[in-house]
């Protein structure tokens, strides 16, 4: 049986480690940190975990419509492609820091990239 991307990256345990690293990078990134001002950090961390789980090919039932609805208030605040690019960079940097091989990072990035239109409400 061939392992899925999610298994190869390390499953739930890896996502738990990744979410702290990823969220720290996002908060420290001046390009996008303002979108996270005033949010409940616990709730936000749980959502980020759900997002990373999806990007890693793990269990999720997100639909494009969920992504659209969940980010509409941010699009109204000016969320655009440059911010999405910044998040993509932070995902790649997180996985690099966790010594995930390049081909798996590329697969995760492709899954995350597939949400771009819905996240940005295009």
């Amino acid at each position: 049986m061939s392992d899925t991307l999610y298994d190869k990256i390390g499953g739930d345990a890896a996502v738990n480690v990744a979410v702290d690293i990823f969220y720290r990078k996002v908060l420290a990134d001046d390009r996008i940190s303002r979108f996270f001002d005033g949010v409940d950090m616990d709730r936000q961390a749980a959502k980020q975990k759900a997002f990373l789980t999806m990007a890693f090919g793990g269990p999720n039932k997100y639909t494009g419509e969920d992504m659209r609805r969940g980010h509409a208030h941010l699009v109204a605040k000016g969320l655009n492609d440059s911010h999405f690019d910044a998040v993509m960079e932070n995902i790649a940097a997180t996985l690099t820091e966790l010594n995930v091989p390049g081909d798996l990072i590329a697969q995760a990035a492709a899954i995350a990239e597939s949400t771009r239109k819905d996240v940005l409400g295009k």
Binding site: K47, A50, T53, G58, K61
Partner: peptide
């Protein structure tokens, strides 16, 4: 509910 996969809480 949102993710329906035991993650988003």
């Amino acid at each position: 509910s949102s993710c329906k996969a035991g993650v988003c809480q």
